[in-house]
Amino acid sequence: MWVYVVKRIFLMIPTLFGISLISFFIIQLPPGDYLTSLLASMSDSGQTIDPAEIARMRATYGLDDPMVVQYFKWISGIVLRGDFGYSFEWGRPVSDLIWDRMGSTLSISLAALVFVWAVSLPIGIYSAVHRHSVGDHVATFFGFLGLAIPNFILALTLMYVSYKYFGQSVGGLFSPEYIGADWTWGRVWDLFMHLWIPIVVIGTSGTAALIRILRANLTDELSKPYVVTARAKGLSEFNVVMRYPVRIALNPFVSAIGWVLPNLISGVTITAIVLNLPTAGPLLLRALVSQDMYLAGSFILLMGVLTLIGMLISDVLLALLDPRIRFT
């Protein structure tokens, strides 16, 4: 088992390298380098800067080095010192800015993942066991709808509906009166009232996809001979379904962490922009628009790493769940 985990971690390294290359590529993509942007923004605000200082900074950041050297400086700064570079727009090191935002991105994604599981598991099982029933058709229809409505449109619609019919402001995580307030039950409730919309929005498409996958897998499993064996043993229908095929059809659920997580993080990004949540999304967009590239690149890198970790966790869980993977 440990051998398997170590092997998986080693297999991650090239992918990790690829992700860092892509992030670095994006940082380098806009014309001009970091200092020209800095100078431009400084002269916008009427500041001037000593040319000697500029030269010193060019040297520190290695802006005149070849790309490969620049890449190594950048990546070793991150790996060895946790130094993600400097955000000229905020005038602070990137590492000061990202962790809070990544934390909230991660927690909303995880909350959405829990939502996805909690909703799709019972509905998926029901749909597979009662195939072609009315409930199944309803679930399938909503599944299609859930897949078809892009996150941000759903977010806008829910925002509009709740604004129009409930008179509620749904942007952000708190109502104005609770921002910066102490934690009280009222504040928790307020947070919950704000949080359900993003979680539903982000989770909908993942839920729909998982229901479809679970239904298809479970339908396959239900026709396998071992199910008949379990029935022939005299197990009740509920136990037959829950103990055997569901156990095996759970595999896609666990491996879902691997591919649902990137979707969720994607979803959080755009939904957060629409709903103005304090996650990485709005900051990333702002950084990109103002070409604050170290900040933007760091976010993209960390989001990639996050999904990789998600995949690793899902692989390990899968191996725990299914002895066939563990032993080969």
Partner: peptide, 8 residues
């Protein structure tokens, strides 16, 4: 496919 698409 490991990268979250929208940020990319």
């Amino acid at each position: 496919s490991a990268m979250p698409t929208i940020p990319l």
